[in-house]
Design a binder for these strands. Structure first.
Lengths: 259, 259
DNA sequence: AGAATAGTGTCTTTTAGACAATATAGG
DNA sequence: CCTATATTGTCTAAAAGACACTATTCT
């Protein structure tokens, strides 16, 4: 019996005392790497469908820290910028339970019936975050037999309303990046302008004019040109840049218009 | 014993069965009239502080319909555009209970103790809306001895984190109106350009250039100039306009930039 | 030389923003 | 004529957007 298993049992047995009832958080953890946008999903043991990493909220924490805790369990990253974007509360959203009370009883050896708090309807608070997916080795837990990056355009079948939550997260992210800079945790410390542009293109799902894009970012003043080039063979070597952290943070606060 | 009283008793007695636990909605109902922005607050019986109209979420409704239901109870308006803007979840936010278990027992004649679901911590989902406050006659209920419009700049002492919720709502509204049109339910069907501008100025808390403001709104194409003037004495009569509803709705969807 | 990608400059259109004189109505 | 508010236009600066040629490196 490992820690995760103990955690699960404690959730089932003492959850009602320690966790908020009828509310959960779900994280849309988006991963970027090499022109691809992926989302981290997990597969509950014995179930055909996939789901977002989510969890319950302890009575002594905020929804933000609950989301951070859940994300850390799956990614081991503790510096994710998690953004609350919408509450999902359709009463039927969790109607088709992943595990019935009997399933849970069998899986855990505990006595769980329909009145158990985990069998109740849940509204969920959606968060999204962006990370470099090659940095992350997805980790599962007792109930999750698998935890995998899926390309956002080729998603497997998902439980509940999780497909809808992902769609809404991407919509929110696309609006977000036209007013705030991104890239700080997604690109290596030193990166090239084409790399930054391709990041934007990947998330927006459309091509951007390279000349105008560079102009905007350079005029925004948040880049520092380095005296160094990326060593690529076969063609001209692109210059490396890094973010001016202070100005980047200021732009996060006050906005910037990239389109 | 009136309906409201029956509702309250049913909430206390059967709430655990019918309502989501540990979650509520709170509405920041902003009212506009004649250069003033006010917020609708209510005062619980026997308490010195004021609070936002809020309530619990039935298991068979969405958070949006719960917010609409609560707003309707206070304003009798059923066509409010309620906008979900943030979840408030500081664990200490409701630490200083409005009513203790003893208070509630006395008030209702029921037997309520610390373990009662209403005594538990709540996170709350914040909504805001805008209306013409002269349209609304605030109505209270059994527990609320008063329901009053307060100027947003002269708020009374508020329970919990409700002051913070109001501040955040106004912040969200100010961002909202720089990208989406407002005015449809706040101004009479026929209104003048200065009236529209003053509405924006009131919400933004700053003056706007009348020439540039008119230009933007007219160029946006969502106004229809009427062959009619408002009858004001003592100076030139301003022309009346109305919104082109179709284009207004489109601008709500796709954005518009008023600054 | 050819292939591949990087890097940049110009022109046009649109938008933002500052700014002030004239028009209308009533007393 | 005076007061009060409405209405409208111009100029400038900044930003957005369309567009194409030159530079570098490697094979």
């Amino acid at each position: 019996m490992n820690d995760v298993f103990e955690n699960m049992n404690s959730l089932l047995l003492e959850g009602e005392k320690n966790y908020l009832q009828n509310v959960s958080v779900d994280n849309v953890i988006l991963g970027y790497h090499d022109k691809e946008l992926k989302v981290l999903l997990q597969k509950p043991s014995g179930i055909k469908k996939w789901m977002l990493p989510g969890g319950h909220i302890q009575k002594q924490e905020t929804v933000e820290s609950a989301a951070a805790r859940v994300a850390f369990e799956r990614t081991n990253l503790d510096d994710l910028y998690l953004k609350q974007f919408k509450v999902f509360s359709n009463p039927d959203r969790t109607k088709d339970k992943i595990y019935s009370a009997e399933d849970l009883s069998k899986l855990t050896g505990l006595n769980i019936d329909e009145s158990h708090w985990l069998m109740q309807p849940f509204i969920t608070i959606g968060f999204y975050t962006l990370t470099e997916f090659s940095k992350v080795t997805p980790s599962g837990n007792y109930f999750m037999e698998d935890s995998v990056w899926w390309p956002v355009n080729e998603l497997p079948e998902l439980v509940y309303d999780h497909k809808y939550i992902i769609d809404e997260a991407i919509k929110a992210l696309r609006i977000h990046i036209t007013f705030r800079p991104i890239g700080l945790k997604l690109l290596p410390e030193k990166f090239t302008l084409p790399e930054l542009r391709i990041l934007y293109e990947t998330i927006l799902g459309k091509e951007l004019d390279d000349r105008n894009f560079s102009k905007k970012f350079i005029n925004a003043g948040i880049l520092e040109k380095l005296d160094e080039k990326r060593q690529i063979k076969g063609h001209r070597k692109p210059n490396l840049f890094k973010f001016n952290i202070e100005l980047y943070m200021e732009a996060l606060e006050n906005g910037i218009n990239i389109n």
